[in-house]
Design a protein around this nucleic acid. Structure first.
Length: 288
DNA sequence: CACTTGACCTGTCCGC
DNA sequence: TGCGGACAGGTCAAGT
């Protein structure tokens, strides 16, 4: 479930793996994986050299020297995996860790002039890839509406609290998941940060106190930074640009830990539905 | 406009 | 063992 830390991990990996490489071929399955697919996709990609890999919220932006940008959203099960010339065969010790590509979830294959590949895999086909002029990227509806980057250096607790003003009557969890409030928060880090700040996910935004917002700000940033440090969270599908899993869930306090003891007070963690999502809390630390 | 729900997909797991 | 149904969750469209 790529959220901000997972997408950032992929971005950092790709930066070192694909910048400077030149596209020599591109293959894609259906317009779903490549919504603006046409003859132009090949025409604009082939011979283009990759110059940068950026991220905004959960969206990856691969900049080409041609002033075009590949805009990619991994949604829930998307992967962007680079393969150099070395491919581990079935008998290799790393074969099970790294899996052979392409596989049946591969939707787009980009081949570089040196024979390496970038695979866009997506089991559930919710993700997408688009090619557009770089100058048009900020005009995408999502880009116009999306909230501030929570990990940006100049982002203050006061600004964080201000982001929620519009959403006084909804639950704090729904507001956290709303990309127009703050960018990049998904289900895992919403649950983890609310536990850290000792806030019940169903509390209404309007009831969150001026002491609680800074706590949530601090917890959210700490949780996301730790997740980036651990290479993200792998539940089932997520892998980084080298095809490797992230380990944050080994350090998660409540997410997917229902039935286990709260690491703070020992109370049994419970799971229920909030904001339409599976939600994990410590019923002692987080109350309504 | 604010807010909630359903749709988009497919693989996995659970109960019968 | 097979099979139906619930579930997983990011975002958008459609609904209240």
């Amino acid at each position: 479930m790529p959220e901000l830390p997972e997408v950032e991990t992929v971005r950092r990996g790709l930066l070192g793996l694909i910048v400077g490489r030149t596209v020599s071929a591109v293959a894609h399955d259906t317009p779903k994986g490549f919504p603006n697919a046409s003859a132009d996709v090949e025409a604009f990609l082939i011979d283009a050299t990759i110059v940068d890999v950026r991220r905004r919220a959960k969206v990856l932006l691969i900049d080409l020297a041609t002033d075009y940008t590949l805009v990619i959203h991994l949604k829930m099960t998307g992967q962007l995996v680079f393969r150099g010339e070395v491919v581990f065969g079935a008998g290799h010790p790393n074969a099970s860790l790294i899996g052979k590509l392409p596989d049946r979830s591969t939707r787009v294959t980009i081949t570089f002039s040196d024979g390496s590949h970038l695979y866009f895999n997506d089991q559930r086909k919710f993700g997408w890839m688009k090619l557009m002029p770089r100058l048009e990227v900020p005009n995408i509806d999502f880009m116009k509406k999306v909230g501030p980057e929570p990990l940006e250096a100049g982002f203050t607790p006061e600004e964080f609290a201000g982001c929620f003003k519009r959403r006084a009557k909804t639950s704090i969890k729904a507001a956290l998941l709303d990309q127009t409030v703050v960018a990049g928060v998904g289900n895992i880090y919403a649950d983890e940060s609310l536990w850290g700040a000792k806030i019940h996910p169903k509390r209404l935004v309007g009831s969150i106190t001026s002491d609680e917002f800074p706590r949530l700000y601090t917890e959210l940033r700490a949780v996301m930074n730790k997740a980036i440090e651990k290479g993200g969270s792998t539940d089932k599908n997520y892998v980084n640009a080298e095809g490797k899993r992230g380990s944050y869930l080994d350090f998660a306090r409540v997410f997917r830990r229902e039935g286990q003891a709260c690491p703070r007070c020992g109370t049994t963690i419970i799971k229920f539905k909030a904001a339409g999502r599976g939600t994990h809390i410590c019923p002692h630390c987080q109350t309504l």
